[in-house]
């Protein structure tokens, strides 16, 4: 360590390694992992999301939820950006994941053709 700058630069990198432990003010991706969801292939979606976030070096929280009663729409994937409404995407395929991540998570535009519901901020 030869300067304070060097330390700070290093820290900026390292903070990402433990960012999973911090959820405040971060975008969230929530995947329906009820029996219905898993039966419809939600496990693949979860893996695809993880892979995508890792690939694009994003600071995002990924969590799971149970059945929300829309079993016929499974696999379900919700995206919630800080301070914005929570958008639910239905019948998501592994192929859709990249699009949702890029368009919604990175660029902030909900992917309208896949979205099936909108929950107001603070809901659930």
């Amino acid at each position: 360590m030869k300067s304070l700058e060097e330390l700070r630069k290093l820290r900026a990198e390292l903070e990402k390694e433990i960012s999973t432990r911090n959820s405040e003010g971060k975008p969230k991706i929530i995947i329906g992992m009820g029996t219905c969801g898993i039966a419809a292939g939600a496990r693949d979606i979860l893996q695809a999301v993880t892979k995508e976030v890792r690939k694009r070096n994003l600071d995002v929280n990924i969590s799971q939820t149970g059945c929300i009663g829309m079993c016929e729409q499974e696999p379900l994937l919700d995206v919630q950006l800080p301070g914005q409404d929570r958008i639910t995407y239905g019948k998501v395929t592994a192929g859709d994941v990249e699009r949702i991540v890029v368009e919604h998570l990175i660029n902030g535009n909900a992917v309208k053709d896949l979205a099936i519901a909108r929950l107001e901020e603070g809901g659930i």
Binding site: V53, R54, N57, L58, I62
Partner: peptide
């Protein structure tokens, strides 16, 4: 790319 990203950390 962030190979160190894990969606969950389990602290024991």
């Amino acid at each position: 790319m962030n190979p160190k990203f894990y969606r969950s950390h389990v602290l024991v």
